[in-house]
Amino acid sequence: MNLEKLSEKLYAQVSLQMEEALSIENALEQLKSGLSLVQKALATLRIELTKNGFTNCEEEIYFFKKGKPQIYSLLILVTERYAIENSMPILGKEKQLAHLESQLFFIDRFFRQNEFLYQYYRLGATDLDDRYFTRAGGNQLVGFAEVPDVDPSFSTVADYLFSKFMAYEKLRDFIRKDIEMRRGGDADVHKNAFKELKWTGEAVNMVELVYGVYETAQVNGGKISLSELMDFFGQVFQVNISGYFKRFADIKRRKSMSKTRYLDEMQRLVSKRIEDSDAWIPDDQKSRYGY
């Protein structure tokens, strides 16, 4: 497997595992678990690079421009989230909001300080790729606020900053959602709009349903995380499914029944509905047709 395919495979695996790590209630355990996941993935990439190297310049550019940074960005993300939550004021809503606003200011300042390269990243530019994302491109990035010492065998002059761009964009979205929730903004509006809807079935059935929606990429063309889907369904239907990874593990361990018993039952009942003579007439419309 070449490095491009390996990096994509590892990123997909670690992204899903990272969501599970971030569902852990203890912040320090979140951090330890997240760091371990990313470090193992990076170690695998380093070993493969040492053994086989790159087949061409295009593969090297892809690896250092996207392959490695998207994995390393997860390490930055989990570290920054821990730092923000660990320094959050314990009491006082306004103090907590001020703390989160200050983090947004820090992120925006970082983007401004590295504006040229950030725009290069945002626009998907390629004309300087051979300088920024090959190891032969040099180790000097003049005019940028943050250029750490890098391992010349496993880094280029710009791959670390691309990792931070990816991480900080995700972190900014996370902070904005947190602020909105603490202010009782749109989240409360949506909650009130659906306040009469309540999931009365087993929570594990909800988990099974959401996994089905996620795996079939029915929302936003699949460009949504599993945790975001779980949060949405949990809020709308007023059910606590925060421990969905554990519930999914329980689903996988089922032996005396179908592992997807709820989805199977749903499919059976929908098929029966279709086969019934009044399948296409909604209940509230039956009187119109003399039923």
Results as ranks from 00 to 15, higher is better:
Asn2Trp: 05
Lys5Pro: 01
Leu6Thr: 15
Ser7Trp: 05
Glu8Gly: 02
Lys9Gly: 03
Lys9Trp: 01
Tyr11Lys: 11
Ala12Pro: 01
Ala12Asn: 08
Ser15Arg: 07
Ser15Trp: 06
Ile24Asn: 04
Glu25His: 15
Glu25Leu: 06
Glu29Leu: 09
Ser36Arg: 06
Leu42Met: 11
Ala43Glu: 10
Leu45Ile: 07
Ile47Glu: 14
Ile47Thr: 13
Leu49Phe: 02
Leu49Val: 02
Asn52Leu: 08
Cys57Pro: 01
Glu58Ser: 09
Glu60Pro: 01
Tyr62Val: 14
Phe64Ser: 13
Lys68Phe: 07
Ile71Met: 07
Tyr72Gln: 11
Leu74Phe: 05
Leu75His: 12
Thr79Ala: 12
Tyr82Asn: 00
Asn86Phe: 12
Asn86Ser: 14
Met88Cys: 11
Met88Thr: 13
Ile90Cys: 00
Leu91Glu: 03
Leu97Tyr: 03
Ala98Arg: 13
Ser102Trp: 00
Ser102Asp: 05
Ile107Arg: 10
Asp108His: 13
Arg109Ser: 09
Phe110His: 02
Phe111Tyr: 07
Phe111Gln: 04
Asn114Leu: 05
Leu117Lys: 09
Tyr118Leu: 12
Gln119Val: 01
Gln119Leu: 05
Tyr120Ile: 11
Tyr121Leu: 05
Gly124His: 08
Ala125Trp: 07
Thr126Asn: 10
Asp127Trp: 11
Tyr132Pro: 08
Phe133Met: 14
Phe133Leu: 03
Ala136Met: 08
Ala136Phe: 09
Val142Glu: 15
Glu146Leu: 12
Glu146Tyr: 11
Val147Phe: 02
Val147Gln: 13
Asp149Ile: 12
Val150Leu: 07
Val150Pro: 08
Asp151Leu: 14
Pro152His: 14
Ser153Pro: 05
Ser153Tyr: 11
Val157Asn: 09
Ala158Cys: 01
Ala158Gly: 02
Asp159Cys: 00
Ala167Lys: 03
Ala167Pro: 10
Tyr168Met: 11
Glu169Phe: 03
Lys170Ser: 08
Asp173Lys: 04
Phe174Cys: 04
Arg176Thr: 09
Arg176Ala: 01
Lys177Asn: 05
Asp178Gly: 00
Asp188Val: 15
Val189Tyr: 15
Val189Arg: 10
Lys191Asn: 10
Leu197Ile: 03
Lys198Leu: 01
Trp199Ser: 03
Trp199Asn: 02
Ala203Lys: 15
Ala203Pro: 13
Met206Lys: 00
Val207Ile: 14
Val207Ala: 04
Leu209Thr: 09
Leu209Gly: 04
Val210Gly: 04
Tyr211Phe: 10
Glu215Pro: 00
Thr216Tyr: 00
Val219His: 02
Asn220Arg: 04
Gly222Glu: 06
Lys223Tyr: 08
Ile224Met: 11
Ser225Met: 06
Ser225Asp: 12
Leu229Gly: 04
Leu229Glu: 06
Met230Asp: 09
Asp231Tyr: 06
Phe233Asp: 05
Val236Asn: 03
Gln238Met: 14
Val239Cys: 14
Val239Glu: 13
Asn240Ile: 10
Asn240Ser: 12
Ser242Phe: 11
Tyr244Leu: 01
Phe245Leu: 00
Lys246His: 07
Lys246Val: 15
Phe248Ile: 06
Ala249Asn: 09
Ala249Met: 12
Arg254Leu: 11
Lys255Met: 11
Met257Thr: 14
Tyr262Gln: 08
Tyr262Leu: 01
Leu263Gln: 09
Met266Cys: 02
Gln267Thr: 13
Arg268Thr: 13
Leu269Ala: 03
Leu269Val: 12
Arg273Ile: 13
Ser277Met: 01
Trp280Gln: 02
Ile281Asn: 06
Pro282Val: 00
Ser287Asp: 12
Ser287Gln: 11
Arg288Phe: 14
